[in-house]
Design a protein around this nucleic acid. Structure first.
Lengths: 234, 234
DNA sequence: GGAGTAAAAGTCAGGATGACATGAAGTCCG
DNA sequence: CGGACTTCATGTCATCCTGACTTTTACTCC
């Protein structure tokens, strides 16, 4: 039995758009510069360094290849089908990350790194299409019961902005009143006391995320908080 | 950068006990027969074969070292801290599995394979204590919204037996009436039409799992079904 | 044949959710 | 200056879900 190669890749998500309207979930891809799949778009990734843990390797490879700085990083899955690479055997440990919508400028000015709409991707190398599909599912699924929308937003935001993040990711319209009620009741969010000026209407309250409340369902290496789930009965 | 060793290990769960009362969640461990941690209890595992995918490697290593046959197998997490093994660098891709309560006899008659209560584990090699803790969290969390209790049960069972599985895993008492209501409404389970004889009371209806309904939140390599979650609002 | 046991079904109050309505606080323009 | 317009913010209401509890049914045991 020969040791397979080990790679660490990341599916990076950001919300592209005019920060209030028609936001689109999108992700950066890198063009492969060597065989196999030379010239094809692929997920950013690379090898595992000697002194790094897996999350550090994911973050470093992400930064090195795209110039982006992740606000949220979580392990997705390890892919190891024997035939997923035509040449050597490669096991990929894949992470997924969120970056802010202002990060597009930070992307390398390089024709080999480009952003694509999550719903309109080009042909991808290896099994990366499957990986992206799974990451998308995980993002949407997790957004519903965890507070990770902060990965897309500035430290301070309005509830309408937060709602639009949810709407863009889930591709579904949410009732503003009900959204306000549930989000405020959840304690995920605290009003700063300030209001957003410069609108052509009633100025909305600004909020920030409640740092006292931990992230739900994190990596096993971080501290976990209790999770209240729908439950089975009684 | 040197390639790390790659291992595939599995946390195996079974319910031990008199099949109706005082069931205890327990798991088999193997005693290490080589350095490092020689003589210490550890998770069953081994290398990745050339032609295997990761799940196959987990199942094979599990069978080879314990003799058990998993009824449910799912990837848990990839662990790769640089210092998790004192000697060489090892990245472990860890799965978790469920086996039936009747599988204790199938365990190798070997002092190097033993069952332990999940709440009363010995000192474990490497970071395996952390891994087991995380697997336990995942099992309990997932049992609440997914239909994987079948991994512990015979093909046919009563609702009381199913409820006792939930109670043993979640370590919490469930109301029989409410449990029946939610489980029947969920469509996870279908009555066979037969009843269980030999009790000293009213004979309970036998059920089997609804095969038409897919497993929720499976591996990315299998087909996924829609998931209805608590949701954020509207 | 009555006591005992668990199965199965039913009841009820409280909380969460979705759909919708109303008032509040600004800007814009004639 | 004042009405139209916009979105924020709050409120209402019917419905469904959940947890706690009660009642009836069907069997065995003594």
């Amino acid at each position: 039995m020969t040791q397979p190669d080990l790679a660490v890749s990341t599916v990076i998500f950001a919300l592209r758009g005019t920060s209030s309207e028609n936001m689109v979930l999108s992700l950066p891809l890198v063009r492969r510069i060597r065989s196999p799949f030379e010239g094809t778009w692929a997920l950013p990734g690379g090898p595992l360094g000697d002194e790094e843990d897996l999350a550090q390797a994911a973050g470093r490879n992400l930064r090195d290849t795209t110039g982006l700085e992740p606000r949220y990083l979580e392990q997705l899955y390890a892919f190891g089908q024997p035939d997923r690479s035509p040449d050597n055997r490669v096991v990929s440990i894949v992470y997924w990350a969120l970056v802010g919508g202002d990060e597009f400028a930070a992307t390398f000015d390089d024709e080999n790194v480009q952003w694509f709409d999550a719903d309109d991707l080009p042909a991808l190398a290896f099994d990366h299409a499957l990986i992206v599909e799974y990451a998308l599912w995980r993002l949407r699924n997790k957004l519903e019961y965890s507070r990770l929308a902060h990965g897309f937003l500035e430290p301070t935001f309005t509830l309408a902005q937060l709602r639009k993040v949810y709407e863009a990711v889930l591709k579904r319209r949410l009732d503003p009143g009900n959204f306000r009620r549930t989000v405020e009741a959840s304690g995920q969010v605290v009003p700063t006391g300030e209001r957003l000026a410069g609108t052509n209407h009633r100025p909305p309250q600004l909020y920030r995320f409640n740092t006292a409340q931990g992230l739900i369902d994190p990596d096993p290496l971080t501290i976990r908080t209790a999770l209240t789930h729908p439950g089975v009965a009684s």
